[in-house]
Nucleic acid binder design. Structure first.
Lengths: 205, 205
DNA sequence: CGCTAATCTGGAACAAGTTTCAGACTGGTG
DNA sequence: CACCAGTCTGAAACTTGTTCCAGATTAGCG
């Protein structure tokens, strides 16, 4: 039983080099179009053309626009995680480090609001058909937050706190992107939700 | 200056009786279709037909599918608020009352997950073009939460807490709807985020 | 090399949101 | 009543995500 699970989860046979290159070209093309005009500017025909693949091929690699943009977000998050490993947050308490981490991610997104729009809207609009891919992004985000907290084996309560932080993170981004919340307010929301972590330095209690 | 603001905000001339009836029929038709199959089942042509109006008329009343579904959510929230006025939450402390209120709303949504799907996905997918309408929903939600807290004049910090609660609320619904979070987890998230309110009974401190 | 299965291409076709428009209808006004 | 402006209808057209397919290309294999 358990033996098949890992295989079932990744049904993809390992891509050849050309295929890996195609996948990268597609993601890069999507990112470039997203930078121009956000979610709506990422048009599947244009992505295919810019990546130099046929439309049918694009859909073989990413079964929907949502899948494509969620994969793009996963890509960017992996970059972020690498950057965070090189330069971890420096605060004394867990709450401060998580807030610093999220604010750093937020600043990265601010550099390209259109790109952020495409990725975040795709993430929250995704339906059950893309839930596996969204789940992958969520796991990555959880890891990033737990890294910042310095927790290897979180309790149930801590996991719920992390989920609430992620909820706030996603939804605050959405309200920022749609112009209903300012950058400063998003910052305040992040600080506020990190208050759930508790002010005590890691290792105490 | 200030005198025109109220008028500008509601540019709609007061609808005639027939027009009000049309609007209602449209909303009801949208709700019925949403109950069948969620966001994707609400097809503008079908809404128009079920409501007995031409497609162009539908678009005159609601300039996009998103606007339509967000308006539907506002409608439902007004119902909820009326129900809450009749039977307010009974807890001793503010956090408990807010949690109770949100859990009640959540149970209402569970009665029709498809309808919830249509409304909540529309709400979080809305772009700047519908931000005024989304903002109206947000104001209503804020009022409902502040009612439960028993706060008439919240401070900056309290408003940020309310925003975080709303963020968690929306995002937790999304993860529940896409099957990535269980009902129990959503409940725990709501309890957790309400912890930000502080355990003290209203009136103390 | 030659074979076979899988993949990729180009392009048509389909689905659903949105726009447009000419003509019919309605409500208020002189 | 006659008229005007605004509204509604019915239908076609346009856009963009998605599907489908026949033929060309590629990859792995004997």
């Amino acid at each position: 039983m358990g033996r098949m699970t890992a295989e079932a989860r990744r049904a993809e046979p390992p891509l050849t080099e050309r295929q890996e290159a195609r996948r990268r070209r597609i993601l890069r093309a999507a990112a470039q179009l997203a930078c121009r005009g956000g979610f709506e500017a990422v048009q599947m025909r244009e992505v295919a053309e810019a990546a130099g693949v046929a439309l049918g091929t694009l859909y073989r690699y990413f079964p929907s626009k949502i899948h494509l943009l969620v994969a793009l977000m996963e890509d960017q998050l992996q970059d972020l995680r690498r950057a965070l490993r090189r330069h971890p947050p420096t605060g004394d308490d867990a709450a401060g480090r998580v807030a610093e981490t999220l604010m750093r991610a937020f600043r990265a997104l601010q550099r390209d609001p259109h790109l952020a729009d495409a990725m975040v809207r795709a993430l929250t609009f995704a339906d059950r058909g893309a839930s596996a891919e969204v789940e992958a992004v969520s796991r990555l985000t959880t890891k990033i937050v737990l890294d910042a907290m310095g927790l290897a084996e979180p309790t149930q309560e801590q996991l719920s706190v992390v989920r609430v932080i992620e909820h706030t993170w996603h939804s605050a981004l959405i309200t920022w992107l749609s112009g209903r919340e300012s950058i400063a307010q998003v910052g305040r929301d992040i600080e506020t939700v990190c208050g759930l972590i508790g002010p005590r330095p890691a290792g105490t209690g």
